[in-house]
């Protein structure tokens, strides 16, 4: 389910803030869709997906609270699906839609 943010950025779990930043910058330089403006649509889309993954990883890991949360979830479920219902308030259940 959830991606391994450390793996995405090629980091180990004890990476420092600077290492995280540096890794993201390297990914951005490599995968930002603009770098592939002249390539085929397929290459471009693949790069865009990679970029989005990297920026999501960076978003989580660069924020100490989010990183701690993420690390906790990872340890307690190894990234399996049960993290979703337990801790993610963004998940289902909390927000119901009004009837049309």
């Amino acid at each position: 389910m959830e991606q391994d943010h450390y793996k995405t950025l090629g980091l180990n779990r004890s990476a420092t803030k600077e290492e995280i930043k540096d890794a993201f910058r390297k990914s951005a330089l490599k995968f930002h869709p603009d770098r592939h403006a002249q390539s085929s649509a397929a290459t471009r889309n693949a790069a865009a997906t990679q970029f989005k993954k990297a920026s999501e990883a960076y978003e989580t890991l660069s924020d100490e609270r989010k990183r701690a949360d993420y690390d906790f979830r990872w340890r307690n479920g190894s990234g399996s699906s049960n993290w979703r219902s337990s801790s993610s308030s963004a998940g289902s259940g909390n927000y119901y839609y009004r009837r049309e």
């Binding site: 869709p33 865009a48 970029f51 989005k52 920026s55 999501e56 963004a90 998940g91 289902s92 259940g93 927000y95 119901y96 839609y97 009004r98 009837r99 049309e100």
Partner: peptide, 20 residues
Amino acid sequence: PTTKVDCFSTRFDNQPSVLF
């Protein structure tokens, strides 16, 4: 660019449709 997926559900029993 970014892609974010959020999950939603119904608010009432047997709700046939949802307006976003």
